[in-house]
C-alpha cells in the first residue's frame, strides 16, 4: 500500500543544514574566544549551544517522524495543464504530540519546491506537476523536508507513491465529425418511438406530476377538466467518432480534435462510439463513457494504428 507513508527511522535522513554548520563554526569561535579570554561565560554559552545542537538532532528527528503523508485522489487533466496531486498530512495515530513547523515538498527533477506550515495549513496540500504530452504519468519521487525546530538540521525523506494518472490530449476545437449510423446497416439499434417533445400525439387526462406546459389549456378553459397533451419523438441519432488514417506528426492534432469532440458530445448527451483502429469503444453516453473514451485517447499509441 504505497499511497500513504508513516515516516520512521528507516525512511528518514537527517543531516546538519548549512546553518547547522555555521552554528558549529560559531561554537568553535566562542570556544577559542572564551579560552583565550579565560571567559567562563563565553565557554558556558558555547557548551550550551553545543548541547542545544545535540538536543536538536533528536527534537528534529522525532518531530519529523510523527508525520504521516498520504496521497489523495487526483483529477485527470489535459496535456499542458498541471496535474494537481492532493497530499494529506496527518499524525501517527495514537501520538499525543503532533508534528510542527514548515515542510518543503519537491518533486524529483523539479526546481520549485512548495513550503507548507503544518500548523496553519488545511489538508489537503496541492502539489502541481506540469505536463507537456498526453499519456500515463506516474507520480515522480517526492522529497519532503523539514528544518524544524531551529534550522540546525535538515530532515528529509523520499516518497515514491505508487500512483499514476492519465493526461488526456489537449482538446483542439474543430468541426463536429460524427459518423452517423445509418438505419439500414444497423437494424438492431433501437429506434423505438418514445414519448418526447417533437410531435403531437394525442390527449390524455391530467395526472399529478404531468408538466404544466403540456396541459391543454384550451380544453381546460372549455371546462373539460385538466387534460394533458401527449408528444412523441424519435431518439436522437448516435454515431462513431473515428481516427482517420493520418501521418505520424499529425496524429496528436487529430487526437486533440477527437478529445474536443468527445467532450462536446458528452455534454450534449449524445450516444457515440469511438474508433481508433486498434481500440474501439462501443456507442454509449454518460460520464463513464466519456472517461473511457478520453482514457483511450490518452493511451493511444501510434504504432498500433498502422
Amino acid at each position: 500500500m504505497a499511497r500513504s507513508f508513516a515516516l520512521d527511522l528507516r525512511s528518514i535522513f537527517i543531516f546538519p543544514s548549512v546553518f547547522g554548520g555555521l552554528f558549529l563554526l560559531l561554537c568553535l569561535c566562542l570556544f577559542l574566544l572564551g579560552t583565550n579570554y579565560q571567559n567562563n561565560l563565553m565557554l558556558a554559552l558555547c557548551f550550551f549551544l553545543v548541547a542545544l545542537f545535540l538536543i536538536n538532532l533528536f527534537t528534529s528527528y522525532l518531530n519529523f517522524a510523527r508525520l504521516k503523508i498520504s496521497l489523495g485522489n487526483t483529477q485527470h487533466v489535459y496535456a499542458g495543464d498541471d496535474i494537481r496531486f492532493a497530499i494529506w498530512i496527518s499524525q501517527h495515530s495514537g501520538e499525543e504530540n503532533t508534528a510542527h513547523g514548515k515542510l518543503q515538498f519537491r518533486f524529483w527533477l523539479q526546481k520549485d519546491s512548495i513550503e507548507v506550515d503544518v500548523d496553519s495549513t488545511q489538508n489537503p496540500i496541492w502539489i502541481t506537476l506540469p505536463t507537456r504530452r498526453r499519456g500515463q504519468y506516474s507520480m515522480p519521487r517526492l522529497t519532503v523536508s523539514s528544518y524544524y525546530p531551529l534550522g540546525l538540521y535538515r530532515c528529509w525523506t523520499h516518497l515514491l507513491f505508487d500512483h499514476s494518472t492519465l493526461v488526456y490530449p489537449k482538446p483542439v476545437p474543430c468541426e463536429m465529425a460524427l459518423d452517423y449510423l445509418s438505419e439500414d446497416n444497423n437494424e438492431s439499434e433501437s429506434h423505438a418511438i418514445t414519448r418526447g417533445h417533437d410531435d403531437f400525439d394525442g390527449l390524455k387526462s391530467y395526472q399529478l406530476g404531468d408538466p404544466l406546459y403540456h396541459v391543454a389549456w384550451k380544453q381546460v378553459a372549455k371546462g373539460q377538466g385538466m387534460v394533458s397533451k401527449q408528444f412523441s419523438s424519435s431518439q436522437s441519432s448516435s454515431g462513431w467518432l473515428r481516427l482517420l488514417p493520418c501521418s505520424a506528426d499529425n496524429v496528436e492534432h487529430k487526437l486533440g480534435q477527437l478529445c474536443f469532440m468527445v467532450n462536446q458530445l458528452s455534454q450534449q448527451q449524445v450516444t457515440f462510439g469511438l474508433d481508433l483502429g486498434s481500440v474501439q469503444i462501443a456507442p454509449d453516453s454518460g460520464v463513464h463513457h466519456q472517461e473511457a473514451c478520453l482514457a483511450a485517447l490518452a493511451t493511444f499509441t501510434w504504432g498500433k494504428h498502422a
Binding site: L52, I55, D117, T121, Y147, Y148, P149
Partner: peptide, 22 residues
C-alpha cells in the same frame, strides 16, 4: 521555522529544548 504555531506552544517547546540542553 514554525510560524503557524501558537506563541504559547512555541515558547513551551523552545523552553523544553533549552531546559534539556542545560
Amino acid at each position: 521555522f514554525a510560524p503557524g504555531l501558537q506563541w504559547r506552544t512555541l515558547s513551551k517547546k523552545t523552553a523544553i529544548m533549552i531546559l534539556q540542553a542545560a
